[in-house]
Simulated assay, not measured.
Amino acid sequence: MATHAPLVTISIPAYNLGSYLEKTLNSVFKQTYQNFEILLVDDASTDHTAEVIAKFAEQDDRIKPHFFKEHEGVSKARNYAIDNARGGI
């Protein structure tokens, strides 16, 4: 009987995290558990966060970069990701 690892959703609210986001994402990809999706919610960043997200999304389809919203704070960004998650958070 084959068992499948459950899908895990990793929610990353991002507001002006361009300088840190690459290190964060590289850390996630180094984990041993690999059945995950990453929901990056860009909360209207004004730095290069969107470019970092786009770069990583081109390299790995587990990144769901299409979550961009008006700046409303980390709680609303996190809740937005939860509402769009396919796996367990």
Rank of each mutant, 00 (worst) to 15 (best):
H4N: 09
P6D: 08
P6H: 09
P6W: 01
V8Y: 02
V8F: 03
V8C: 03
T9L: 01
I12V: 15
I12M: 08
I12D: 00
P13W: 00
Y15A: 04
Y15C: 02
G18L: 05
S19N: 13
V28H: 06
K30I: 06
T32K: 15
Y33E: 10
Y33D: 09
Q34S: 14
Q34Y: 05
Q34H: 12
F36G: 06
E37H: 09
E37L: 01
D42V: 00
T46H: 12
T46M: 13
D47W: 04
D47R: 03
T49H: 06
A50P: 07
A50H: 08
I53L: 11
I53V: 15
A54M: 09
A57D: 08
A57I: 06
E58H: 14
Q59G: 11
D60K: 08
D60T: 08
R62P: 02
K64Q: 15
P65G: 15
F67Q: 03
K69P: 03
E70N: 14
E70A: 13
E72D: 12
V74Q: 07
V74N: 09
K76Y: 10
K76C: 05
A77R: 00
A77K: 00
R78H: 11
N79H: 12
N79G: 01
N79I: 05
N79M: 12
I82T: 09
D83M: 12
A85V: 06
A85N: 06
G87F: 04
G88R: 14
I89S: 12
